[in-house]
Design a protein around this nucleic acid. Sequence first.
DNA 1: TCTCTATGTAATCATCGATTACATTTGGCG
DNA 2: CGCCAAATGTAATCGATGATTACATAGAGA
Lengths: 217, 217
Amino acid sequence: MPVHQPSKPRARRPATEARPYHHGDLRRVLIDAALQLAAEGAEVSVREAARRAAVSPGAPFRHFPNRDALMAAAAEEAQRRFRAEIDAALREAPAADPLARFRAFGLAYLRWAMRNPAHFEIISTGRYFAHGSSPDLTRDNAELIALTEQMLVDAAEQGLLRSADLKRIQVAGRALVYGFARMNLDGHFPRWGVGEGEIERMAEGVIDLFIAGIAKP
Amino acid sequence: MPVHQPSKPRARRPATEARPYHHGDLRRVLIDAALQLAAEGAEVSVREAARRAAVSPGAPFRHFPNRDALMAAAAEEAQRRFRAEIDAALREAPAADPLARFRAFGLAYLRWAMRNPAHFEIISTGRYFAHGSSPDLTRDNAELIALTEQMLVDAAEQGLLRSADLKRIQVAGRALVYGFARMNLDGHFPRWGVGEGEIERMAEGVIDLFIAGIAKP
DNA sequence: TCTCTATGTAATCATCGATTACATTTGGCG
DNA sequence: CGCCAAATGTAATCGATGATTACATAGAGA
């Protein structure tokens, strides 16, 4: 039976009661909450995000069909911030020196990953954007890949590289920075004798070692 | 004091009932179930492991204080297998050529990671062996790190390396293979234009590129 | 044989993702 | 303006899971 009854006529909301029935921009707030939870090292749960948005546990499902969709949206937002950082770094890099640009790219990549490890994990784990990912994210990724590819093509044309196998260089470079970022994320560096304070310097050193390795002597 | 009461006289178990009350080696079976679940791409849940062992949902907690402890034990077992593979590869590598050994190490590492991605994730994610990890696992890891270090020291003594910064080379090499393995795990290769069938060949190519980069020309 | 301890079961809890029925706003349309 | 439909929030509920507790049973050794 309808247990339902307008028991509370719902007095006109006094000025002290801040939150209206409708939230305003719940979707956005949920994404931010998810990113913040991740950054705090906590598990991202839909309910906790709802709690932080001061909203009922079911409300988020009005905006996201399931938890993964929320995580995917958070990944998209994190990727947006990541991409902005990369672009900024490239704007400051010398336009004419492809290897310098390659280096700047790697450095910006690692710096962001070091400083936003949880967000880096979200955008790279693949769980949240691999198959059903947003077209934006897919395009964004393809653009970044094409960027590094172009740098290597330019470098090869200028005769800067020892090897002509650009694909191999590209994948190796990617594996290098990705692996470095994950080592940090997964807490491997203590075991490898790299102290907290040395990590960013080591990142730079590793990138330089790689570039020296591929560059024509 | 035993609030205990023999309420049920409990009939003698008929011969048709196969499983005895005590399991025999539940701990072992649970670990195997966890590894198998991971290998199947499923989420590893304590209950599902218990189900596969045909045991009550609470039983696993007699052997592991919590889920993470089960995962840690599974990680330990996976690491044992991984280590065995590495050791086997090194036994077949030329004892006198440190760079060839370095290469063999990297290849064995990646081959195992490509063929056992889920197990590789368990042993590397750090979630299950970072802080309260078993001494065995910690020691094992330290040994592997020391192994690669020794190879590089030998190579340097034989004048095979371009750079004297062995630590940097070591970390870079580790980041390279770790990153490659994670790219595979995280499903990045399709985006990078590396087809399913080319991955192992690319792994070899990437390792060779790295070694060519650090070796004295 | 008797008892202690290890190990398994049953019942129960809190949390979480997810769904459903219902309530409240809001915005558009007459 | 007034009404209605769509959007958005709430409350109640479900099934699965990790975890705990009281109790049952088996096996080993005195």
